[in-house]
Amino acid sequence: MKKLVYFLMLTIMAGNQVFAQVPNKEKKALIEFYDATNGKDWVQIWNLDEPVSTWYGVTVANGHVSQINLFRNNLVGFVPESIGRLEQLEILNLAFNSISGELPKDLVKLKDLKVMRLEMNRLKGSLPEALGKMEKLEELVMFNNLLTGSIPESIGNLVNLRVLNLSSNLLKGIIPGSLGNLVHLQSLGLFENNLEGAIPTEVGNLTALRELVLANNQLEGDIPTEFGQLASLRILQIQNNKFNSFKSLQSMDEARFTVFDYDKKDDKQNFKDVNFSRTRMADTKFEDDNDE
């Protein structure tokens, strides 16, 4: 009987050990990431001799790495291409660190990713043209970086997006009309870039949108009449652009808005005087949730 109990205990322990393991390629990818972001100087470091499931900010589910949450952990360096090996990753939160360099091309291989938060870093270069392949994304937040280039048309393929914030970067070009495909989008922030041209009429398709922040760009033309379709909108900030007319806003009931800012001819507001941070939309929304 004792031998049977002993055997069962060994079996359970072995099973737990196997369950806690991840494929070797995933462990190697994590170690490369650790080295590339100066892991030895992190606030919370990893003990590479311990199982991956014990590493700070790493969640393992069904034998695979499913989450990496290293919010404000003093990451310095770059994200290596090997990040793309974490094929079952669902959450990647590297916000409020000092990561520099360009986004790795293999980032788009993370087809199961639902949340990608890279805000408040020093990332440069352009957004991947193949960004639209990450179709399960629900939150894409990259404000306050040094991103350049244009917003890829393929972003319209991210039909599950609820939050998109690319504010306070160096993006240029037009706002792609494909954004109109993001019918579940609740929050859109493109504030303080170098975007130009007219606001696409397809924005009127975003009927779930509650927050639209396009201030401090070079946008022009007339405000689309389709703005009247945004019945859920509660925050609208489009000031400090080059619009020709705000006539379409006259049909909107200002009383339902928490914030309703545009360059009124009779009361032009200075966006820099508004009492909130440059990254108001996402900063205040997410920081308290992760800074524990």
Results as ranks from 00 to 15, higher is better:
265 K>L: 13
238 I>P: 00
267 D>F: 05
213 V>F: 01
235 I>S: 06
231 A>Y: 07
250 Q>C: 10
244 N>M: 01
218 Q>F: 15
246 F>T: 03
234 R>T: 01
261 D>R: 06
268 K>G: 04
263 D>N: 11
231 A>D: 15
260 F>Q: 00
216 N>C: 11
215 A>W: 01
259 V>W: 03
216 N>R: 14
248 S>W: 09
261 D>K: 07
258 T>Q: 09
251 S>A: 15
270 N>F: 11
226 E>A: 13
241 N>Q: 04
250 Q>G: 14
217 N>K: 03
240 N>R: 06
247 K>A: 12
266 D>P: 05
250 Q>N: 13
259 V>Y: 12
257 F>Y: 14
219 L>P: 02
257 F>Q: 06
240 N>Y: 03
217 N>V: 05
226 E>Q: 15
266 D>H: 10
218 Q>G: 04
218 Q>L: 13
241 N>G: 02
237 Q>H: 02
263 D>Y: 07
226 E>V: 03
254 E>H: 12
251 S>L: 14
228 G>A: 14
239 Q>H: 12
270 N>W: 14
253 D>K: 12
245 S>Q: 08
253 D>E: 15
243 F>K: 05
231 A>K: 15
243 F>Q: 06
261 D>E: 08
226 E>C: 08
227 F>V: 00
268 K>F: 05
247 K>E: 14
263 D>K: 12
262 Y>S: 09
249 L>S: 00
253 D>L: 06
257 F>K: 08
257 F>T: 05
223 I>P: 01
268 K>T: 08
217 N>A: 07
225 T>Y: 15
268 K>Y: 11
253 D>M: 08
249 L>W: 02
230 L>H: 04
225 T>S: 15
267 D>Y: 05
252 M>A: 04
244 N>C: 01
225 T>Q: 15
251 S>P: 13
226 E>K: 08
268 K>N: 12
263 D>C: 08
268 K>D: 12
232 S>Q: 11
249 L>C: 02
235 I>V: 10
269 Q>G: 07
250 Q>I: 09
224 P>L: 11
265 K>C: 10
238 I>D: 00
221 G>I: 07
219 L>A: 02
232 S>L: 07
249 L>F: 03
263 D>E: 13
236 L>F: 01
269 Q>S: 11
244 N>V: 02
225 T>I: 13
228 G>Q: 14
258 T>C: 06
217 N>L: 05
261 D>N: 09
214 L>W: 00
231 A>Q: 14
253 D>S: 13
247 K>W: 10
253 D>V: 04
240 N>E: 12
241 N>P: 06
250 Q>V: 09
244 N>S: 08
241 N>L: 04
220 E>D: 15
270 N>Y: 10
255 A>W: 05
257 F>D: 10
213 V>H: 01
212 L>W: 04
214 L>H: 01
219 L>T: 03
270 N>A: 11
249 L>P: 02
217 N>F: 02
262 Y>P: 02
246 F>D: 02
244 N>Y: 03
246 F>Y: 15
232 S>T: 05
254 E>Y: 11
220 E>Q: 13
235 I>L: 13
218 Q>S: 14
